[in-house]
């Protein structure tokens, strides 16, 4: 009996010693290793039996947890690049399993669009979802925004906003549709859109990401307003943002939450050296595939 207890104690101590390096090893595994190979949704449908919705929800949650871990790394930690192609592949598999899974569509819109600029990939997912979530105004709202803001396809943007207005009964979408018909207020439009997005998510990582984007766009809008005021007073475009501060149009140069510096380019548009993305200059390729 005593020998048995000693044996159990030795095994427990050994396990306790192994756990910290084991957990560390699990944490530093690459995304592909952590998630394993997720087959294409078209294949998974054949083996998922009656658990398609569960399987789709599981892989989407795994992506959310992975993204949350990456985006909430402490400042003194090494920032590993986010595996956006892997995320995109998994989201595609998830919507093939359950085309009504809103988390997959929302994540595609919140992350693939802004962080990776894969507008066509996200729109493809959203339009696929629209066929099934035919009651949900958010999907045409997202497609409309992407079409107008990024792709400059104003006819499609207006059509999608009208669809969103029909589904929601919200006149805001009709106003947005009208605004797109004469291509105006691009930054203002993005702020309205991001505010709605930020309010409607519960995931802290995604919320934080959207808040940062919103903060940057509010700063851009402040500079644009000052630039337009300057142009109306002096009849010319300002040479720099510094000039706007000197002339009292701005109290100070707004802070870029992505760590860059705002400047005016040759045609007077407001730009930032960060290109409004974290680690833009040393970020590896983030081309995503379907």
């Amino acid at each position: 009996m005593k020998k048995m207890l000693l044996y159990l104690l030795a095994c427990t101590i050994l396990l306790a010693a192994v756990i910290p390096p084991f957990v560390g090893y699990q944490k530093q595994k690459s995304f592909a290793e952590q998630l394993g190979v997720v087959p294409r949704g078209e294949v998974l449908r054949y083996v998922a039996a009656d658990q398609k919705e569960f399987l789709a929800a599981s892989v989407v949650l795994k992506v959310l947890i992975y993204f949350g871990g990456r985006s909430q790394a402490l400042p003194n930690q090494v920032q590993l690049p986010v595996d956006y192609p892997g995320i995109s592949r998994i989201l595609h598999s998830a919507v093939k399993l359950d085309p009504r899974n809103m988390d997959a569509h929302y994540f595609a819109q919140a992350i693939l669009v802004w962080d990776v600029k894969q507008i066509d990939v996200a729109n493809g997912l959203l339009e696929y979802g629209m066929r099934y979530r035919d009651w949900d105004f958010y999907l045409p709202f997202f497609v409309g925004f992407n079409s107008g803001y990024f792709l400059k396809d104003y006819e499609k943007a207006a059509r999608m906003y009208r669809r969103a207005a029909e589904l929601s009964g919200n006149p805001l979408f009709i106003q947005l549709a009208g605004r797109y018909l004469y291509e105006a207020g691009r930054t203002e439009h993005a702020i309205v859109y991001l505010t709605a997005m930020e309010k409607s998510t519960r995931n802290e990582s995604v919320k934080k990401n959207l808040r940062t984007r919103l903060e940057a766009l509010v700063a851009v809008r402040a500079i644009e307003n000052a630039r337009d005021l300057f142009a109306s007073r002096f009849g010319r475009q300002p040479h720099s943002i510094g000039e706007l501060v000197q002339r009292g149009m701005l109290s100070s140069i707004p802070h870029d939450p992505y760590g860059g510096t705002f400047y005016l380019d040759e045609d007077g548009s407001v730009r930032s050296t960060s290109k409004l993305a974290f680690g833009h200059l040393n970020q590896p390729s983030t081309e995503v595939t379907q």
């Binding site: 919705e53 569960f54 929800a57 988390d103 519960r202």
Partner: peptide, 19 residues
């Protein structure tokens, strides 16, 4: 688990229960 969802807490709760 269903609280982890961004936009479909109800749907996830029902998915988990039924599955």
């Amino acid at each position: 688990i269903s609280q982890l969802s961004m936009r479909q807490v109800t749907e996830l709760a029902l998915t988990l229960s039924l599955s």
